[in-house]
Amino acid sequence: MNLIPGIGIVRGMSLTLRRFFQPKVTIRYPEVPSDVAVKFRGRLQLLYDENGSLKCETCFQCAQACPIECIDMGGMDTKGRFHVHWGAAETYGERREESALRRSGRPVPDPAYERFAPIDIAAVDSILEDFDHDPAQLLGILEATQAAFDYLPVGALKRISERTGTGYAQIYGTASFYGHLRLGALGAPAAAPSAAPYLAALAAATGAAGRQADA
């Protein structure tokens, strides 16, 4: 506090008055974009190459290499058959990848996003038991599994991955590499999604709403 009362207020007022005439520091954002830091870490995006096709092949290598497991990815495999996923079960990530696929312009088969069919895990476990859970015998395990199920169900691949401690990417890579291994059942065409149930539900809903309004 000063000897003269009010001198502090006067000093403050003079400071604001000086600032009134000084150049302003505001960055006019939409016209002047703010500069991005050299080490800026934004959202990882790996959507298209220059030809407009998806860059990411969902090989999971980046996700496996990430030390703090922050990469969470999912999408169609390269042959467009199965939906594969790495990371915590977060529906947000799923939706994001799905929308990326849609924006890529490719047809997106909806069944890919449904849960895969349940399988009899005991069969897989006994096969694994036979092979002593040895990842080195992966091809043998896969062949035996295919013999048991007639093809390689996703659930079986996941079970193998879980029990042998091998990355799913490696198992999936092996299974899709060999021509004699099948990832889908023979001659079982995927049912095209039909709009009829949705329309029926819609009609029911609107009908119900109409009745409600009447009452």
């Binding site: 996923h85 849960r115 895969f116 349940p118 991955s161 879980e162 401690g165 799913y168």
Partner: peptide, 10 residues
Amino acid sequence: GVRHMEQPEA
């Protein structure tokens, strides 16, 4: 090991 999004269940 690998974490699973799609659990083989009912």
